[in-house]
């Protein structure tokens, strides 16, 4: 099973404090982390502040941080902690905000065996995803787009692994239904 995990080898950053490598890391993760921070604090400007804070802190502490096994997961956790501290110092509660829209596209590299997905199907799937509860949609993004494991998502969102499983099954059922019941041309 392929995961879309963005974890690569960033060892040159950890070993040599390579700024170029660090910029690569920021490029790869900023958008995802911002989205995640936003789901906690509820607005984009603060989310950006939090992500910048996390990067600055990691840079400053790089000599003392044990290189994590999954940098991606490490960053998500750092964003979560920073965001929660931020809320706490402002006397606010988590916002559970996730207004992002999700895009659906068929694979770019269509192979001959692939069964065509019609434009209608894509539209229906998009509608199906938009109709998912916000929490479910967020889990969906963390698993399907970020490639995080159920376990990691459970820790990040303070849920049980079973809940993550239930929510993913729910998302799958909706999309399954949106795919329709018949595939006419496949037998012709």
């Amino acid at each position: 099973m392929t995961r879309s995990s963005k974890d690569q080898d960033y060892s040159s950053f950890w070993m040599w404090g390579d700024l170029t490598a660090f910029k690569e890391i920021m490029k790869a993760f900023t958008a995802s982390l911002k989205y995640f921070a936003c789901s906690i604090v509820g607005n984009e400007a603060e989310a950006e502040e939090i992500v910048a804070d996390v990067f600055i802190k990691i840079w400053q502490q790089r000599e003392h941080i044990t290189p994590p096994e999954s940098l991606q997961y490490y960053l998500f956790k750092a964003v979560k902690n920073t965001a929660l501290n931020y809320l706490k110092s402002n006397g606010r509660r988590s916002a559970h905000y996730s207004a992002w829209e999700i895009q659906v596209n068929p694979h770019r590299s269509q192979s001959p065996e692939d069964i065509l997905i019609s434009k209608e199907q894509v539209d229906q799937i998009r509608d199906a995803i938009q109709s998912l509860p916000p929490r479910c949609r967020q889990i969906f993004i963390l698993v399907k787009e970020e490639g995080l494991t159920y376990e990691q998502v459970a820790v990040l969102l303070d849920l049980s692994k079973a809940t993550v499983n239930v929510q993913m099954t729910l998302a799958l059922k909706k999309i399954w239904a949106a795919l329709g019941t018949t595939i006419k041309y496949s037998y012709s």
């Binding site: 269509q110 692939d114 069964i115 787009e145 399954w176 595939i183």
Partner: peptide, 18 residues
């Protein structure tokens, strides 16, 4: 029938609108 749909599901790519 489910098998074919499962194949379609595999082809879907999801991303946040950015």
């Amino acid at each position: 029938g489910d098998w074919l749909k499962a194949g379609q599901l595999e082809q879907l790519v999801f991303s946040k609108v950015t």
